[in-house]
């Protein structure tokens, strides 16, 4: 593989990465797709430094010269783990793998998105503060382990919701999901003390917008729920959501541009609640969010924009 190549880090079963690989292939752009979780058994590297990194990244099926990698798409890959848990030296080997192999990957230019930036931007408190600094409207929010503080906060609002920081929970009998849920003060008990909990003002919204941004290009989809669950959290009832292309008001566009610039993100999937008075309230940002189904539902050319961002020299 000798041409300028796009590195795609992802799992084998990732339909969204498949979309991007297919589009790059259609354009004749060489792609090296791999999962860092395969290192070192099915994925190897030799990097030589002489002022710039040279060498090869290779799998049993292909290799790529490190200095021909022009950009990287970081799409929910597995974690680097060189040793099996509990094996002699395994913990140390994994740390070395992350430092060496992970370091060479981090040195790839023009990530969409830079993994370190994503890790920082995934923190919800960071997002809310950045959104407010950029001029976006934001809901009143409390993060606490104190039941009394939670009750007082919720009681002081017309309506409130509980929102997790991490939506998935692996129970003994399968994975559960925790969606945005209405909450009242009298329902809050001492179990709030067990961990950080996020309570938030409920925005009396007309609809929601999923805004996908790729290198300054905006793709806005209006999501209107047809069920109580979908109106509360559209993720909880996909079958009851209507989609349409939406326009982004200029002040929101400017604020989002400033926010993503501060966070160092080239890509973001952002959720807004649009109040009945027209105000766009920033709710959430996912620096590695899904977009394939939005393109499918609306025709917005998000995949092409990502392929542009990965294959166009910066």
């Amino acid at each position: 593989m000798n041409g300028d190549t796009v590195l795609v880090l992802t799992a084998r079963l990732d339909a969204t990465a498949d979309l991007v690989v297919t589009e790059l292939d259609r354009r004749g752009v060489p792609v090296f797709r791999c999962d860092p979780a395969d290192f070192p058994d099915r994925l190897g590297v030799s990097g030589y430094f002489d002022g710039r990194w040279r060498g090869t990244l290779h799998s049993p099926y292909r290799s790529v010269a490190l200095d021909r990698i022009v950009s990287g798409y970081y799409r929910r890959p597995g974690r680097i783990a060189a040793g099996t848990a509990g094996s002699p030296g395994g913990e140390w080997a994994t740390a070395e793998a992350r430092g060496g192999f992970g370091g060479l990957l981090a040195a790839v230019p023009r990530w969409l998105n830079d993994p370190g930036r994503m890790e920082y931007a995934e923190y919800k408190p960071v997002q809310l503060a950045a959104a407010a600094r950029a001029g976006l409207a934001t809901p009143a929010t409390l993060v606490t382990t104190d039941p009394d503080a939670a009750r007082a906060f919720v009681a002081g609002l017309p309506r409130a919701v509980y929102k997790p920081f991490c939506g998935a929970y692996r129970a003994e009998d399968g994975t559960r999901f925790i969606y945005t849920s209405p909450v009242t003060a009298d329902a809050i008990d001492e179990s709030v003390r067990h961990t950080a909990h996020q309570f938030q003002e409920w925005i009396d919204k007309d609809h929601e917008v999923r805004l996908t941004v790729v290198d300054g290009r905006f793709f806005a989809a209006r999501l209107t729920g047809r069920s109580v669950d979908a109106r509360t959290d559209w993720r909880s009832d996909y079958d009851a959501v209507d989609y349409a292309v939406a326009e982004v008001p200029d002040p929101v566009r400017a604020a989002v541009t400033a926010m993503l610039g501060e966070l160092g993100l080239r890509f973001a999937a952002m959720d807004f609640a649009v109040h009945r008075d027209g105000t766009w309230y920033f709710l959430d940002l996912n620096p590695n969010g899904q977009w394939g189904w939005i393109e499918h539902a609306t025709g917005l050319p998000i995949c092409a924009a990502i392929a542009d961002a990965l294959s166009t020299p910066g």
Binding site: Y162, P164, Y169, A171, G174, R176, F177, I178, Y179, S181, I188, D189, E190, S191, V192, H194, T195, H197, D229, S236, D237, Y238, D239
Partner: peptide, 15 residues
């Protein structure tokens, strides 16, 4: 009471 408050909202996906 042994579980964090937020887990009372956990549920199996509708679909």
């Amino acid at each position: 009471a042994e579980l964090p408050f937020g887990l009372r909202f956990a549920r199996t996906p509708r679909s």
